[in-house]
């Protein structure tokens, strides 16, 4: 495998843009936020992040999804945590999100617009919300 150059990367981006412009994908403006504080990283948030990205790619959602990393959301006891915000669904925080659950979230929540049971937790812990 050859090393890519930044120019190769630009070309890939342009090709993908053309490809994506031909598709009409539902569920625009999807935001997925992964807690990447010490607690999240220790619990495997990096694998969760990778799995979300892989699933977004698999379901051809990449044009419409923003994936952010944030610090601790205060739910250290159920890390890794993932928040999903998108039109037509309640903003939801999922906890204990391993790679398998991450894929399930992309498939069920983002594509099928169904909540993923047994992993829903409350808003960020009350003691860390900025007043």
């Amino acid at each position: 495998m050859a090393k890519m150059t930044l120019e190769d990367l630009r070309k890939l981006r342009d090709e993908r843009k053309k490809d994506l412009n031909r598709r009409d994908v539902e569920g625009k403006n999807v935001q997925i936020i992964v807690g990447m504080g010490t607690c999240g990283i220790a619990a495997g948030a990096k694998s969760t992040f990778d799995a979300i990205l892989a699933a977004v790619d698999e379901f051809h959602l990449d044009k419409d999804v923003v994936i952010r990393q944030t610090g601790c959301m205060g739910l250290c006891y159920v890390e890794p945590t993932v928040e999903v915000a998108m039109p037509g669904m309640p903003a939801t925080i999922y906890g204990k999100v391993d790679a398998a659950v991450a894929r399930e979230i992309v498939q069920k929540h983002v594509v099928e617009k169904t909540l993923v049971e047994n992993h829903i937790f409350d808003r960020p812990a009350a003691d860390i919300i900025q007043k």
Binding site: L9, L12, R13, R16, K17, L20, L53, V56, D57, L61, D62, K63, V65, V66, I67, R68
Partner: peptide, 10 residues
């Protein structure tokens, strides 16, 4: 932060 850019950057 865009998924496309993250995939390509990866």
């Amino acid at each position: 932060s865009g998924a496309t850019a993250l995939i390509l950057a990866g």
